[in-house]
Structures are given as structure tokens and as C-alpha cells.
């Protein structure tokens, strides 16, 4: 038995109500339950989760902004027996790293991607992300996201789910109990896809930033139910 649990004792720096703390816990629980901690090599992003290595009790590296899937590709090809996953925000994955995620998925890399969609750039002060809702105010969309200038929320999960190399894609949310347990099941499924050597797997977790983009956590939760999950419907997209 592996007695060292996947989460360290270090107190997380995340703001109260931040989705990252919850999602870290879920990922670590899954790794513990699968008993694969000693096989994991994780790739942390540039974003609020940049110091995830403080909280994760397994091997971790940290990629340049957006490049996690390419770094994970390199690791997994050298260590096909290991479990390699990336953990990325929506700026990291859906803006600067769009090319890397699409092509890693299309090559069918046997890696798992945890895609945290909180609708903003948390770390740099709440700027608009590709996933920001139409009309949503952010530090760089003062009058709200305007489709004539900023385009529409980008649907990366839908985009990659049509690719042949992709085995499993699911979108979940973590703003309520059911969502949390569904997220855990999805992440477990995604890791199992990798363990069984089946192909690329990704879970998009609709999360929230308690500081930027909403006046209160309550409002952020409300937006997830009212708008975010309408634009980004939850469920299995592939697999």
C-alpha cells in the first residue's frame, strides 16, 4: 500500500471559494484511489495553479504558458508506463496553448488533461479569457465581452471531441455536490483511459474565480447555472 497520500500538508494559497482547491483535491483523491501516485508525472500550468507542486505529493514539472500538452507529450513518449497529466487554466489551454492542446489531442497522445475553465485569467488580475461569457465584464472588457470585438466563448472540448485521436472528453462543474462527485468520476475515467493505453483524455471542469468576474461567490455560482452551463453544457462529449 502507498501510504503517502497525493496531497501534501501545505496550506493552499487559493482564495476562499476558488475552484482550484477543490479540483486539486479531486485529482489527488482519484490518484490515491487508483494507487498510481508513484507513477505520476504531472505538468503544472502558468496561472493560479502555477505552484501546484507545493500541494501535490508526486513528481511535478511546470511548463511555459500553454505548452503543457507538448511537455507532457515529451514525457509520456519517453515514459509510456507512467501516468502523465496536465492541469491547465482556460488562458493557458484555450488561448496561448490552443495549438498545443489541439495537436496533442489529434496525435492521440496517451495523456490526461484537466482543463479548469473559470472564465477569466485569475492570476494576472481577472482579464477576459477565451471562455468569458458574452457581456461579462472583466479587467479587459469594461463594458462586457462584445462579440463584435472579442468573438464568442471558445469551445475547445467540442472542438477536440471531433478528433479521431481523442478517446474521452467530458465537461463537469464543481459548484455543487453532485458536480463534485461527477467530476471525480470523470477524472477517474480519464485516468483509466490512460492506464488502459486507449488514447487522449480530457476533463473540462467548469470552475469559478471568487475574486474576478463576479461580485460574490453566490453570483458566480448563479452564473454557472444561468449562463455558463448553457454555453458550455455539462456531460460526456466523447467516450
Amino acid at each position: 500500500m502507498d501510504k503517502n497520500k497525493s496531497l501534501t500538508d501545505v496550506k493552499m494559497h487559493y482564495c476562499t471559494g476558488c475552484g482550484h482547491s477543490v479540483i486539486h483535491r479531486i485529482v489527488c483523491d482519484v490518484i490515491d484511489e487508483l494507487g498510481v501516485r508513484e507513477k505520476v508525472v504531472a505538468v503544472a500550468p502558468v496561472g493560479c495553479a502555477v505552484i501546484a507542486y507545493e500541494y501535490w505529493n508526486f513528481d511535478v514539472t511546470e511548463a511555459a504558458h500553454g505548452r503543457c500538452p507538448a511537455v507532457a507529450t515529451g514525457i509520456k513518449r519517453v515514459l509510456p508506463e507512467n501516468i502523465v497529466f496536465t492541469y491547465q487554466g482556460d488562458g493557458d489551454l484555450a488561448a496561448i496553448g490552443t495549438s498545443e492542446i489541439i495537436h496533442a489531442a489529434n496525435r492521440g497522445e496517451k495523456i490526461t488533461v484537466i482543463f479548469v475553465n473559470n472564465g477569466v485569467y485569475g492570476m494576472t488580475g481577472g482579464q477576459m479569457a477565451p471562455t468569458t461569457m458574452v457581456g461579462q465584464r472583466t479587467a479587459t472588457s469594461h463594458k462586457g465581452r462584445d462579440i463584435t470585438r472579442d468573438g464568442f466563448p471558445l469551445k475547445i472540448s467540442e472542438m477536440i471531441s471531433i478528433l479521431d485521436g481523442v478517446k474521452y472528453v467530458e465537461r463537469t462543474a464543481v459548484h455543487n455536490k453532485e458536480g463534485i462527485s461527477r467530476t471525480k468520476e470523470a477524472i477517474k475515467k480519464a485516468f483509466n483511459v490512460q492506464l488502459n493505453n486507449e488514447g487522449f483524455s480530457m476533463v473540462e471542469v467548469v470552475s469559478l474565480c471568487p475574486v474576478y468576474g463576479a461580485k460574490s461567490i453566490k453570483e458566480a455560482y448563479q452564473r454557472i447555472d444561468d449562463t455558463v452551463t448553457k454555453v458550455y453544457p455539462l456531460g460526456v462529449l466523447k467516450g
Partner: peptide, 11 residues
């Protein structure tokens, strides 16, 4: 970035 990953994995 790929060679970054492969290098840290020992290749």
C-alpha cells in the same frame, strides 16, 4: 517544449 518534457524524463 517536447524536448523539454523528454529531457526531464531522462532522454
Amino acid at each position: 517544449s517536447m524536448i523539454f518534457g523528454a529531457s526531464l524524463a531522462g532522454a
